[in-house]
């Protein structure tokens, strides 16, 4: 079964960039344009990894992560946050809400792919 990854970002081109970046290892990429949609999609489709943008309208990324981790249904999803803000306080905040990773924009798509690959590998070994 292919791995399922959910990308939550309100910028269409960024979503496309992530999709193309992850093309290589046959993952299924779903997307959501805002926080509410991201939470709904996470519950419905149970992705293994959620790539979550912080600056989204209405419900921001930190809040999405918090809710995700509070819900037993979605707690197990690996959350990697990305944002243009690169301050230490934000990394700290990400850790506090339970994110497993943090990528700053502009990100190198190759690096992103490598981070995702690492997490997927971790999941596979956990399965074994």
């Amino acid at each position: 079964m292919p791995h399922r990854i959910l990308v939550a970002d309100d910028e269409a081109h960024i979503v496309e960039l992530v999709r193309v970046s992850l093309e290589e290892f046959g993952v299924e990429v779903l997307d959501a344009p805002d926080g509410e949609a991201a939470l709904a999609a996470a519950r419905r489709h149970q992705p293994e990894i959620l790539l979550l943008d912080v600056m989204m309208p209405r419900v921001d990324g930190f809040e999405v992560c918090r809710r995700l981790k509070a819900d037993p249904l979605t707690r197990g999803i690996i959350v990697i946050m990305f944002t243009a803000k690169a301050m230490e306080a934000d990394r700290q905040h990400a850790r506090e809400v339970g994110a497993q990773g943090y990528v700053t924009k502009p990100f190198s798509p190759l690096q992103l792919a490598s981070v995702v690959r690492e997490h997927l590998r971790g999941l596979s070994s956990a399965d074994e």
Binding site: I14, L17, V20, S21, A84, P106, F107, S108, P109, L110
Partner: peptide, 9 residues
Amino acid sequence: TTVSGFLEL
């Protein structure tokens, strides 16, 4: 991000 990302790809 988009510009540099696609160019790198």
